[in-house]
Design a protein around this nucleic acid. Structure first.
Lengths: 139, 139, 139, 139
DNA sequence: TTTT
DNA sequence: TTTT
């Protein structure tokens, strides 16, 4: 009935862009979200959360985001089940993003080549894409 | 850094209440959250999301909630990894609740016996419990 | 950059439906949202929050909601300023809803006449309307 | 019953720190939150939203934040009414923050003097303060 | 498998 | 394994 997720964290790797058989772009990346409180050993733990992005927003993320970038994600929590290649039922949790906001500047390129996303101003936003009625996610 | 989840859905079964070795109450239940849009076959899918509740709120949920009840949950998405009994690494997603609001009345008891939660008014809220620095969840 | 509001509360009056000069439907209502904690006098206070709904969702709300109904609202907080008829600058806060979920059944009609919204099942949802690029709200 | 607000924006001025008669610290600042969509004239509008912070988090904000800083705020929308000095009833909307996350680095100081917040790393968080049962906000 |  |  209602399913809202809002995350702020850093990409653990560059986004991967794929296309569904019908041609819809889908991007995926993993977000490291540090917990607010430390555990009993005094360590700060972090949750690694899979993000899925569809359509135009997928291409924007693939073009402008990279490992280490800080983003805010607004989406919904989706639980998918499937059988793996050993026939074991597995369940996957992922956040399907409606909105991804870029919260920091891309790092300077080391060699004069414009880095991915170099023209994106700090804090610039990237519109909203609502994904629905799509085929299976090919990750 | 920021990790917020807000869900509205129905319990798929009665909550289970356990206690950690150190005596902290923990309750768990699964929430059925219908998706907003239907899939390409025109069916409405639903996500089944595990909820974990600690401390006093755990006992309140165990005492007053049951299968079928409608609730709103505010919490954070937590990803835990462990090795199952076949040594296969598995990962579990669950929402650790800070707040659980009861949105409907308990069903009438069939036989004059007061049902669980019968004294709880519609819409009554159950305070906020923030869980942290706790031992492993025994589900 | 990001502006999310999620509320659960009860309508303090029936929604009012208007149309902009260009014909876009807009509905408004006020939501009573009880605070979680009591104040120092031990009283529970409540916030009365103005909700604005556009387009098809406006008509759905006007047709099916009425005073006292319990709803969940997902939207954004909007601050508008204007000069009142005495030339005093005033500022208005309202939540522009993207989604309104109906969380309880309509009350039984007293006289056999079907009440507004009588065909709406408990928990039924009403799609999402995103309002933007609209003219001034005529309340 | 449920009242959640999540905002990302920039401070329009330095925070103001006050103390209630009983000694509780309260800080206030205004947040500029750009809207996602442009209006019919193609301009991007922005909402200016008052934020109130209590207790230790108030002092942390006052010490480390300043005009222009980018933050994420998690809180609740509060509507207060009062009569102004001309006896006109006025209503004020503000977000009472539970959490404030600092999303950018403080600007370099111009003259070698350590700037406010200079020891705060990018993305460092500042715990959570829940304010309740407090006296009137003295702004 | 992990980010700063 | 699933709720209405």
């Amino acid at each position: 009935m209602m399913n809202k997720v809002i995350l702020i964290g850093r990409l653990t790797r560059d986004p991967e862009l794929r296309y569904t058989p019908s041609g819809a772009p889908v991007a995926g990346f993993s977000l490291a979200v540090d917990r607010q409180f430390t555990n009993r050993q005094g360590e700060r733990e972090t949750d690694f959360i899979n993000i899925v992005v569809w359509q135009k927003l997928a291409e924007t993320c693939a073009n402008h985001l990279s490992k280490g970038r800080l983003v805010a994600v607004d989406g919904r929590l989706q639980i998918r089940s499937y059988d793996d290649n050993q026939g074991i039922r597995r369940t996957i949790a992922e956040v399907v993003a409606n909105e991804v906001k870029f919260l920091d500047r891309p790092k300077e390129s080391q060699q004069g080549v414009p880095p991915k996303g170099s023209s994106i101003a700090e804090g610039e936003s990237f519109g909203s894409e609502i994904s629905f009625n799509e085929e299976e996610i090919p990750f």
